[in-house]
Design a protein around this nucleic acid. Structure first.
Lengths: 390, 390
DNA sequence: ACAACTTTGTTTAACCAATAGACAAAGTTG
DNA sequence: CAACTTTGTCTATTGGTTAAACAAAGTTGT
């Protein structure tokens, strides 16, 4: 049993993490302000800030303006103290970014993915990571870790339990990569990573409860509760795509009927009575731009069904914001109106009032950035203390 | 800003809470075993146990069997060190229990509810609480608090945001009761309290991720994540009853269409082409027992729709167990088979494999016991420390 | 220009909880 | 009955936070 017990080291970790977080959020900030904001004693803040300065995680940026007394010595989070790599595994492509500890993208890379056997994929991942590592500037902590987002269910140990689109089952991905790279690796579901990305760096920065919808070849969702990603009992709880919205609808490959993603993802392209001019989202968007009626009508319909599913999730989760990402978010122009209408018509008033639906700010990069953030977060080692009300 | 900072008091609270929890779960247990189980030093355990003994929250029960050395001095959690009261507010009735700190019911009471204005209801609640307080045995801590479960949305401060069946909006219930009673009051949604009850004392004792469905005049759900109740952004996230299962289904009073509870709660009684012989669940159960075909067919259908909605929640939440409670659970005999069939046919294999669906063990008492537990838990003051993976 | 006040950050001594290890207490076993 | 075991307490130490004093570096009013 590895319960967390209380001792002084824990106290120090909690407080250091609290201070670092405060500096990250309010920089530039003085020690005195940190002390006020956190409630910690000035001496404690001074001591722990000194350690953070020694670690190069924090820097002094010179004196600030006086407010009637001694000038403050302002502190900054040093995003360049280390770097992380974020990966996204899609069915036909692999993308990766090198970011600093503040999540700023320093370099990007991608490569096509043709074979899906474990060996080729991990070899490809290792190669792309090595290429990006070369590009990392010198820094005190170097590459602090790798994060990857994959289209499937993942458990807490970094094993991909099930990824139907890759044909994977029980692949110990983080172990494979760690052995090869000698760095800490975190694995997340693609939608969960996207949710993290938008939460920290994108459209969800001010929310602590948000729902991220990744619409592409299927539909995934990432759920942020209280500023943290929620993962289900067995490591994955976002299979919203297989939520029934028509109880006697079409059969789905998952065994259920009337699944949401049959109507509101790229899977709907196979579902049309009137044949569409293409089955690729990017091409359909071109057709829509040229005014192709069938395509536009299909997007409207898709927007409608997106709204139906979002309504369900909103009524169940009561998020502050819903963020729509993934490839289909590029068709925003034709999806948004019908979707917003459906949601406005159908959500409970109490949910609707203070909730808003937005599109991903990071575009196609939500997932890679979120994955990198996972690695960064693991390195910075946040500890949270809570007193549940129940 | 009231962030939790680390100091020695926190450390002590964490460890005391950890020790008390260990004793509650493993009693009778020696100090040495507590030390081993928690990882805390023997001296620490001895000291904190001494304080718990002084508080009367723990008792020594005499020597245990030796395993080759000095006999251990066994410790017990003293459930009789104090008492709590749990309340459930239904539309036509109010029920309450007096429990000890271990959640054992000492006394029960109920009274009909005719008027729903705030004053009458709070007066009734105060009266029933006072009656039960009289029945509480003498104890070191006396009545440590009151917990109440209400059919509506509740925020963290104990305000009922919205309770359509009572016609309530923004009622500061916990404040009203605290002023009158001079005791700490916690307010929960009825389904959330039921989930707590079953988690701690009922069918969910071994699960840390569970979904509780309360089927009655509507459908509510309580979600336990990682052993803790999940509440949404504005204090309530279990409006599953208003999840669409037929995107073009009947209109619901909530504004949406095809809501689950139109098909799988007592609301479905108004929904039949063939008139049912009654609109009360208890009477319909009698008819079903006597073999009334229309009623039985209706229950089968209701079981089917229960299964449809449960499938959605299971695919979204991935719980270890689903527990069905509320008045409709009394019709288990006619609901269970069709419901189980639908779920088995429709859930994702990965979710289905290790998940089971059960009926509430505490029967109609899930909610009152859960509400009492809230009050107890508040009093015992658990603190949780977590290191999220992201 | 200068005394009085403010604000920032550090130093000091005290406090307190956990801990390792010694020790005392109370067993069992050959 | 001596040697060993297990349980629980005692003691000195460690290492963190803290309040309060203090030092440093400003501003402001006359």
């Amino acid at each position: 049993m590895t319960t967390i017990t209380g001792d002084q080291a824990l106290v120090k970790r909690i407080n250091t993490s609290l201070i670092l977080d405060t500096i990250r959020r309010h920089a530039p900030i003085s020690r005195a302000s940190v002390s006020e904001l956190t409630g910690l004693n000035k001496a404690t803040v001074s001591n722990l800030v000194q350690e953070l300065l020694n670690n190069h995680l924090v820097q002094e940026s010179g004196p600030g303006a006086s407010s009637g007394g001694r000038k403050p010595r302002l502190l900054l989070f040093n995003g360049q103290a280390g770097y992380a790599i974020g990966l996204e595994l899609r069915v036909q492509q692999m993308t990766a970014v090198l970011t600093d500890l503040a999540g700023r993208i320093v370099a990007e890379d991608e490569c096509p993915l043709e074979q899906h056997d474990t060996d080729s994929v991990t070899a490809g991942m290792v190669a792309i990571v090595r290429r990006l590592m070369q590009l990392a500037p010198q820094s005190p902590h170097g590459i602090v870790g790798i994060g990857a987002g994959v289209p499937g269910m993942v458990d807490g140990s970094g094993t991909v339990l099930f990824a139907p689109n890759l044909g994977w089952e029980m692949v110990p991905l983080s172990q494979l990569l760690e052995e090869e790279l000698g760095l800490p690796v975190t694995i997340d579901n693609e939608a969960n990573a996207g949710a993290q990305g938008e939460l920290r760096f994108g459209a969800g920065r001010d929310a602590s409860h948000l729902l991220y919808i990744s619409a592409g070849s299927g539909i995934g969702s990432g759920i942020i509760i209280n500023g943290e990603l929620y993962k289900g009992a067995r490591g994955y709880a976002g299979e919203s795509g297989h939520m029934t919205i028509e109880s006697e609808g079409r059969s789905c490959s998952c065994g259920n009927r009337g699944c949401w993603e049959l109507y509101a993802s790229e899977k709907s392209y196979d579902n049309e009575e009137f044949a569409l001019p293409s089955k690729r989202t990017s091409e359909l968007i071109s057709y829509a731009r040229q005014g192709h009626e069938g395509t536009i009508r299909h997007f409207y319909k898709l927007g409608h069904y997106l709204g139906v599913g979002i309504t369900n999730l909103v009524n169940g989760f009561n998020p502050q914001s819903v963020i729509i990402g993934g490839p289909l978010s590029d068709a925003r122009a034709w999806l948004e109106d019908t979707m917003q209408q459906v949601v406005a018509q159908r959500t409970l008033p109490y949910h609707r009032e203070r909730m808003e639906i937005r599109f991903a700010e990071l575009g196609s990069r939500s997932t890679v950035i979120g994955a990198a953030y996972s690695a960064i977060s693991q390195f910075l080692g946040p500890v949270r203390v809570s007193m549940p009300m129940n």
